[in-house]
């Protein structure tokens, strides 16, 4: 057996960081977040599992709502916002579940945990992936929503509501999806855990959407402020606790 090589002498906590290596490292948080998102998109482009499931679910629920309610002009404003957010959130749950199941397969989540990456980077990367998948679903679903509910195709005040609602959903959803992915009943557990916590975002999104569709912009702006506040709160909580959720 060869003699053990001397290691760097110094303060105990810094000893290992002085180990020599032939490889150059410079991991950056932004680079790592982009790598996670690119990887998720590359896998999705190949399989189309997440988008297909989300899109089909969202369209089906809009169709069912469309047939279930007799949509007169006066009832659209009351029903459409709820129908839209039911479609978006339930489709989002499907996407989140699938997104983390892919990490669980073959122990990839452990592979990520072994990398020199801050846990917050993992959280932001997975959250950003969820936002992108949901945005892709919404880009296709929103025009169909307008057609089914006889609304103008482009309702500009609705866009910030959808953006903030989606970010809030992804901020909480990523946290709970990471929590539930280690359980056997994850498909059931995720919505049970998620929806009670998500209710402020859902209520804000539905109310803001209703106000935007009714053309009441001042009311919509108030609800948007609430939505933005909850987005920030959930994002900060997610960053603070993700390390404990993803750990042992």
């Amino acid at each position: 057996m060869p003699d053990a090589e001397p290691l760097a002498v110094g303060h105990q906590s810094s000893a290992i960081s002085h180990w020599p290596s032939a490889i150059c490292y410079s991991p950056s948080a932004i680079g790592q977040i982009i790598a996670i998102v690119r990887k998720d998109i590359a896998a999705e482009v190949r399989t189309k599992e997440i988008f297909t499931a989300m899109f089909v679910f969202a369209v089906l629920s809009l169709v069912i709502f469309n047939f279930a309610f007799e949509l007169r002009v006066e009832s659209v404003a009351a029903i459409a916002p709820g129908a839209l957010w039911v479609a978006i959130t339930f489709a989002g749950v499907l996407g989140l579940n699938r997104c983390f199941v892919l990490e669980k397969d073959r122990g990839c989540l452990e592979g990520l945990l072994l990398c020199p990456v801050d846990r917050n980077v993992l959280y932001l990367g997975k959250m950003l992936s969820a936002v992108i998948f949901m945005a892709a679903m919404e880009v296709v679903t929103l025009p169909l929503f307008s057609v089914f509910f006889n609304l103008p195709i482009l309702i500009l005040p609705l866009l910030p509501v959808v953006v903030l609602g989606t970010v809030g959903f992804a901020a909480v959803g990523t946290l709970f999806a990471a929590m539930s992915v280690n359980t056997r009943a994850r498909e059931v557990l995720l919505p049970i855990l998620l929806f009670p916590v998500l209710s402020p975002v859902l209520i804000g999104a539905v109310k803001a959407s209703g106000a935007a569709l009714a053309g009441n912009l001042a009311d919509a702006a108030n609800w948007l402020q609430l939505l933005a506040t909850f987005d920030v709160i959930y994002l900060v909580i997610g960053l603070l606790v993700f390390e404990y959720v993803i750990g042992e």
Partner: peptide, 30 residues
């Protein structure tokens, strides 16, 4: 470097894509 019971590889990505992803996570230059 850890090699566990599971491969830590993404089934839907190619070998090259898998290694590229991990290289980015480690911030490898070359």
């Amino acid at each position: 470097g850890v090699m566990g019971h599971q491969t830590y590889l993404y089934d839907d990505l190619t070998a090259e894509e898998n290694l590229t992803f991990y290289a980015r996570m480690y911030g490898l230059h070359n």
